[in-house]
Design a protein around this nucleic acid. Sequence first.
DNA 1: AAAAGTTGTCATTAT
DNA 2: CTATAATGACAACTT
Length: 718
Amino acid sequence: MLSLKKYLTEGLIQFTILLSLMGVRLDLDSYLPSHLPPLHEIILGPTSAYTQTQFHSLRGTSDGYGVHPKSVDLDQFFTSRRLLGCVRALDRLTVPSTEVDAWLVHRETEGSVSQTGSSRPSDSPQDLTSSGSEPNRDGQGLEELGATAQPGSSDLSKEDIDLIDILWRQDIDLGVGREDFENRQQQNENEEVWEPLRDGAEPLEAAVQVDGETGESIRQDQTDLSLEECLSLLDVTFPFGDSPEFPASDTSALVDAEQCPVVSNRTDLLLSPLLADMSGSLDLEEQWQDLMSLVDMQAMEVDSSAEDPLYLSLDPPLQQDVNLDQASLSGCSHNTSSLFTPTLEPFSTPESPVPQLSSHNSTDLNSTFGFTNLTGLLFPSQLNNTGNITSPTTMPDTLSGLLDEALLDEISLMELALEEGFSQVQASQLQEELDSDSGLSLDSHQSPLSPSGSESSTSSSCSSSSSSSSFSEEGAVGYSSDSEMIEHEESEGASGYQPQYSKFCRMSSQDPSRFRHLPFLEHVGHNHTYNMAPEEPEEMQPMVEKNSRRQAGFLDRQAGRDEQRAKAMKIPFTNDKIINLPVEEFNDLLAKYQLSEAQLCLIRDIRRRGKNKMAAQNCRKRKLDTILNLEQEVKHLNRERNSQLREKGENLRSLQRMKQEVEHLYQEVFSQLRDQNGRPYSPQQYALHYTSNGSVILTPRNADGQQGRRAERKDRRK
DNA sequence: AAAAGTTGTCATTAT
DNA sequence: CTATAATGACAACTT
């Protein structure tokens, strides 16, 4: 029962993430078990690069053990924990944290306008949760944080425990024994009930670019909806068509999909990337791209003529463009569904092999999508036209246009070609031709693993990339990541974000301000010194004393130069106050004490340096964001360019085809003409001309001026 | 041992 | 003007 609840909760959370992607926000907190952290923390994560304490408190949990405090690459750690069950059941790799990061990135960028500085974390939206406590408020106690991070075990000594854990971690890293650690671990195992969920949230947290300083975090402006409402909305809004709508490339795939009751649901498709890794060989970027491609597909769903399985199996030329969707598709038709089955048996379908699509098929699928999408986007008005080039009804117009050499170049022909005769085969051929002829490098060429540029996405993942928001608001300080990215790059892809984000996370994790809420850690500056020589273990000492000594040693090691100087100068208050207090309070503080000139000078230096340190961190993060943004922009532009080139090639091809068609028709018509004697006209002496009024006349070639001598009205259809 | 990355600091400029 | 943020440059340090 417990596990059932767990799965349900997790499913709800993921579902909520999905909904948020679709622009719907709902308050799920009321559905969550009371022992779970607020949903917004689960999704967004309590910390960001500039969040001060969350990470700390997380480290204090049992899960934090074994993770190096410095390399705050907890994403993978927690993620793997969370999905352990999935792995065991599905025999697949766990979902890399990066996937989630990408989601978050987008999400975060979304509503928040970054700003800097002194702005209070309290600004961060709390509307996401009803019960969420904002951990980042300056000056707030750690209790709050601790409670948030570990709701189930909120006792008064939580702070101390967390601190001790941190210290132990330090010692552990330094090689000091940690006999207590195991005890604590056992102790904490009682809390594992909610661990999967919380762990799941960790990567998010690590990746989310919530500005800890400003408390800037993701805000969503969407309407609040209840779960039921969202569910119903989902059903209505998204024609989660039956499997055929999802262009499975081969029949077998379709069959598989149909056999699976839930497969056809789009929700599943969307969630699949998050839920399980369908192919271990795919890297994070690929998975993100898969996800984005799924979203993309959803966006274009309806008109796609790809419903016809036959239509899907086309030529291989586009193969390089598409390899990844295969995994997504197979996953969609398999596991995904299981996660949201009403029976709540999320991971119970491992035995059924994942339908594997051949690369050929996947290619077809992708190309189909790509072209369908392109056509729909570029010529929406044409989508419903199904004229056949060779059909009598359309021929006259076509002929009239084509007979005129000048008109041949008209773009209208292109439209016609696009609507009808442009089969996938031709498209693929065009692409192939284009690829080889133009010598242009398409996205697919750039990265064999990345899906074709415009069709699937890459995106920004890390997402963090900062998106346009941070990009456009270069001057602003909040480093909210790009949230808008998902909007305009939904179908785009962004890749290569993750690494950078992890960097962010690591950087931010060392933010000393993280510890500012711990009174006894106030002197802790940067913990760069973690690798210093460890204190000699004093195992004989009682626990408390040992801990205090450890703390002291820790503090000594951690204390920066400024702390030491402050201590030496007997500054009566903490560096944390010196640095973080607002000017007024700071001045009041100074006024309260009789300080020497040297002390005042030192205090001001400490304040300056401390602020500058933060500023430097912000600056670097911003710089990185900018770079990432530019990178994404370049990718996006490249994709755009490639797709336009592709389109151009398609148009040229279709034009060529139309010319041939016209020529053929011309010959056919001409050959059927007879003079008074019933003899055919000589092509050398006569020619057909198309007049402006739509009629076709036969004119002698040698007498240009005497046209009309033998005018024959031709039927429109030849 | 060298190269690259990270972080803190300073000096300067911008807000 | 002051206070603070932003940022380039540098150094110390780690990886």
